[in-house]
Design a protein around this nucleic acid. Sequence first.
DNA 1: CGGCTGATTGAATCAGATCAACTGCTGTGG
DNA 2: CCACAGCAGTTGATCTGATTCAATCAGCCG
Lengths: 224, 224
Amino acid sequence: MELLRDVAATSLFRDIDPKDLTRLANIVSTKQVEKGQIIFSTGEAAHGFYSVITGKVRIFRAVPSGKEHVLHVFGPGEAFAEVAVFKDMRFPATAQAMEASKLLYFPAVEFKRALAADPQLSLRLLALLSERLKFFVKKIEDLSLKEVPSRLAGHFLVLAGSHNADTFRLDMPKSQLAAYLGTLPETLSRTLRDMQNKGLIAMDGAEITIQDAAALEALARGEG
Amino acid sequence: MELLRDVAATSLFRDIDPKDLTRLANIVSTKQVEKGQIIFSTGEAAHGFYSVITGKVRIFRAVPSGKEHVLHVFGPGEAFAEVAVFKDMRFPATAQAMEASKLLYFPAVEFKRALAADPQLSLRLLALLSERLKFFVKKIEDLSLKEVPSRLAGHFLVLAGSHNADTFRLDMPKSQLAAYLGTLPETLSRTLRDMQNKGLIAMDGAEITIQDAAALEALARGEG
DNA sequence: CGGCTGATTGAATCAGATCAACTGCTGTGG
DNA sequence: CCACAGCAGTTGATCTGATTCAATCAGCCG
């Protein structure tokens, strides 16, 4: 069954007992969203969480003035908004499809039953939330203790690591990258120009090539 | 037994099956730390987590330049560093006693066994981590989208709420509060002066009185 | 009474935001 | 096939919140 395959493709459920996968497949539903569509908004009542089958989703917080901060960008295999299942049933941020996407939806009540039945699944989820926390700790450190060039350097090193190559394409528009790094497109643009001038990177549109990894690492550590 | 009472006093274990409490009491040990003592450091190997019986502990990240950001301040009944149990076994931040404190220590391996045995305990922990995530989301929003006066106003409202009174004492030195809000003592001092001048608060040493809650709320929302 | 720590104030500076203009690309419709 | 609307990105000029550097002050403890 196709649903079962999609559930199994969610990394949260990797290596989970096939019996539990089937149980999960019986409670999920699919949801197709188009580019730009809001999936849920900050503060909205939450009755379940999602995972991405195809496409890309951004999670962000916005303030009345219009400024936004992108907390995460999730792609295929990644779950999001699990938090809402356990805590006060409200989404803590807004989710929007960055392109046409196919999602899975897991209703909270049924999912909690699955959790109670399989302690292994709880441990997986605990590990996932722990990872998210660690990620946020880094974000907080970056925002409060480091400057934009430092954050950008760190981000490039992460991207290079995950692509396993010195050349890669940015996985989102530069305006979104700015909101992800806690700055504005103007500042990002200037920072990119500076990095090119200093020979740290080369850039052609959305394609970045790391030219001086050691210098980027020093910069990321805050020795800029 | 005294240990059992201390374990039961940890809010993470409120309403947990007494049988499991006993099991937990059998695996914990106590640790006495003096003021200023480092309990663990960022990146250090982690083999368990802690909770506070008496005293106060701050969790922070520091960069080489000497700047620090205080992520949490934990008091009696609160657990910390649970994250290290589930994810790659490293402490993601540094913990330091702000005063002489008595702690409980839960070894990870034994604790995981207790988790597997009691699904209820897993759910409690999931809820706790979810709460931490929500807290961090707010911190990230504050740091990237709001200014210092806005963050301080929000903090005062939280304190007033938890004390259920318009007058309260700061629970840490102002220098620490500054590091908690992502700024410096100088900036905090000036911001406090401005708030007094504008009649939003009154201050006498570490004692704060809220005088214009509505204005503080507007400020906290970012309408300042 | 020193001496330490935390807090406050002032002046100078800076990173980044803001405001505004312009470029270049892409897709659409005449 | 071209014209142009619309959006992402870049660049310049300016402004400002916050940091930095420096000095002083207040309280507390041995």
